[in-house]
Design a protein around this nucleic acid. Structure first.
Lengths: 196, 196
DNA sequence: AGCATTAATTATCTTTTGTTAATCTTTCGG
DNA sequence: CCGAAAGATTAACAAAAGATAATTAATGCT
């Protein structure tokens, strides 16, 4: 079900964990297999879970009063995600989460995760690893919004996440850059003509 | 030097720590007293430290090639800050940090902090507390950039941080909202006239 | 392959923002 | 209390972005 050796390679902190630690942890997880388009967490939900993307790609988006969707985040292989409103603010999720591709998620209930963390402090290393990773991404992203123009943000996104560029519609990327799809299209044209 | 009782009240996780834990931790910290305008971390520096704002207010800003400053963050009492480039990316800081008011910082070297965390896992709770706090702020901030117009971001900032509104120049707030001070001035006028 | 749906681009027009510079306003040091 | 310096506002113009709609391109489905 889960390839321990591969995970160990990808995440150094797991070396600290004994085989039984890992088995005990995985015992509380569930594998969720999703088809393209499957929703696994709905706007308004309070179901606190932490998800690890084993394979595939996940999108979260906000739906406004007119039914318009705005993508706020994409998460792909080996990334962790959750609804921060639920887990950090104890509020219902503002966003809906669904799979953009056939996706495998390893999920664990947030309350159970807390219990496991209390019982086994060695798991803390994993939590810290993913929190640091997310935090560094977020801090960078904010500074990009502050310091860079939409065009520069797009160019940075394209170099930072080249894989995603061919994997998702441009309109999702436009949303994440904080601009409209129409505007991104114009920016792309501007860039294309600028290079001669 | 530091009022233990007050800190205990403000931060529940400290209840977990014994008196000697706290003393041992504080033994490795230093108090830094700053006058208005004093710089304590310069763009390009690699000095890894974690700072706790005991009192006062701190601003971090980026200086571009033309010498123009752009404020990216403000931190006030009971908040933690550090250069994430240094501590998370092991790169020189892109930002300069200075005091906007007479400020007292409790600082600890990042390497020493890591050692203390290894030795005393109970300190982990403190780290987790501040990381969660920062992370939730950052995630919200990003979603605001994605979902809200500059005007709405300003209104939200005004309600979320009313204290800061009278404490710092508007141009710093404009920077943090990702717009120019001129544009913020126009937005403020628009809002003022809208309410009759 | 062919049709229907969705995404991307283009066009047009309106609104907002950036830029630069001038004018008030406020703050602060002497 | 006055004058210098910094902050905020206003003005005028250029550039970019939003909104809406039409057109073209790409994708998916049977």
């Amino acid at each position: 079900m889960v390839d321990l050796e591969k995970i160990k390679q990808a995440f150094p902190f797991i070396q600290e964990l004994s085989h039984t630690d890992i088995i005990e942890f995985l015992r509380h997880t569930q594998l969720m297999e999703l088809e393209t388009g499957d929703i696994f967490l709905e706007q308004g939900s309070r179901k606190g879970c932490i998800y690890f993307v084993k394979s595939g790609l996940v999108r979260s988006y906000y739906t406004d009063d007119n039914g318009e969707e705005t993508t706020n985040r994409l998460r792909c292989e080996n990334e962790v995600l959750s609804s921060y409103e639920i887990d950090l603010f104890d509020k219902p999720s503002r966003f809906t989460f669904h799979a953009l591709e056939p996706t495998e998620l390893i999920m664990i209930d947030s309350a159970i995760m807390r219990q496991l963390l209390d019982k086994n402090p060695k798991l803390e290393a994993g939590r810290t690893y993913f929190m640091k990773k997310t935090l560094s991404e977020c801090l960078s992203a904010i500074d990009d919004f502050i310091l860079l123009s939409p065009e520069k943000r797009y160019l940075k996104f394209a170099t930072d996440y080249p894989q995603l560029m061919n994997r998702v519609p441009m309109k999702y990327i436009a949303n994440m850059l904080g601009i409209t799809p129409v505007s991104l299209s114009r920016i792309r044209k501007r860039i294309a003509t600028k290079k001669h």
